[in-house]
Simulated assay, not measured.
Amino acid sequence: MKSFQALFIEKEADNTSLHFRETTLDNLPENEVTIEVHYSGINYKDGLAVLPEGKIVNQYPFIPGIDASGVVIESKSDRFQVGDEVIVTSYDFGVSYFGGYSEFIRVPAEWVVPLPQGLSLKEAMILGTAGFTAALSVDALESSGVRPETGKTAVSGATGGVGSLSTAILAKRGFSVVASSGKKDAKDFLQKFGASEVVSREAFQPEKIRALDKQLYAGAIDCVGGKPLSYLLTAVQYGGAVTTCGMSAGGKLDTTVFPFILRGVQLLGIDSVLCPMQKRTQIWQRLATDFKLANLDELATEINFQALPEALHQVMNGGVTGRYLVKIK
């Protein structure tokens, strides 16, 4: 049995800790597709998984990591052959099922997406769940009728993974993006991603939120929930739309019916976890074609596998701008 390294979360009493351990393929869950992992990434949910109060992991020891890309080494499914390059994200992966912080993984075939032509394994994980969620958000805005010529588009939490990649994809599509962030170094970072204008976090969190505010934006991508989402709903113009996919600013939404019944504003929920495979494949195809970002290598900081524990803690301490790419192989 070939041994390999995986990063385990272990729990003792009320504390969790991270340790690299040697394990074997026989210790992975029995399933259809076995993959040698080349790259993974770090998402907010990965950071939560390492916290004892994060409410992500229920059983220990556990291998976290909600993203992985790599090469199939064994398959019991007709959909995949040895040597296929693939992506695995979402579902229970890295949450209640051993995840991508491992040199090898074994997963159900219905969780696996063939790597689309036009993306490398590395580029797929620079994007990861964050890029997939951002692409879902932009796709939803476009499907609702929001276009570059209809006005500016707002992005909240823009220095995070989903926010920064939403900004970049919108800019790629010709949108004028107003990006909001509380980070001191946000302006240069977000302009690199294509933001036309960078505003403070407070700009999307006025002291008093009116039932209807000035119609400043054709649409908005909200990545944080809470007060910014409440405000953006009031500031989107007639017939516009707002997508929402996060709750780092709060899970409560304080709003009225007025944006919906007087301006016809649409509130579009974005879920990447249970997104149907047909839609999932279409979105990854867009990330490899009309959503493809020219400067992907510049949009993430690459770290090696051994640096992962420290990076996970940095993410949860708020000390990271943008994305981490984790080189596993």
Rank of each mutant, 00 (worst) to 15 (best):
A288L: 06
Q215E: 15
I56Q: 08
F305Q: 11
L119R: 07
V242I: 03
L165F: 09
R286A: 15
F204M: 14
D26H: 15
S137P: 07
A134S: 11
V320C: 04
G239M: 00
G225N: 01
G239F: 00
Y60I: 07
I66L: 05
F20L: 05
S40A: 12
V95D: 03
K172D: 06
G239N: 00
V57M: 09
H38F: 12
V273C: 12
A124I: 08
P52V: 08
A195E: 00
V33L: 04
A211V: 11
L25I: 15
V37A: 03
A154D: 06
R286S: 12
K329N: 15
I261R: 04
G100K: 06
E12K: 12
G226N: 02
T255I: 06
E32I: 05
R79D: 14
A218D: 01
R323N: 08
Y44D: 04
L267V: 03
G239I: 01
L136S: 10
V236S: 00
L267E: 02
G145F: 10
T244M: 04
Q282Y: 13
G131T: 05
F4N: 01
F98C: 13
Q237Y: 02
V242P: 00
A135K: 06
K2A: 14
K187A: 08
I63C: 04
S137H: 11
G47R: 01
N58Q: 15
C275G: 10
L308D: 02
Q117E: 15
C275Q: 14
K122M: 14
L312I: 07
V138R: 01
P61A: 07
D290V: 14
N27W: 11
P61T: 11
E10F: 10
S17G: 12
T301M: 12
Q266G: 06
Y101M: 10
L299W: 04
F291K: 01
D46P: 01
L25G: 07
G246D: 00
F98V: 13
P108Y: 07
E36A: 14
E85M: 08
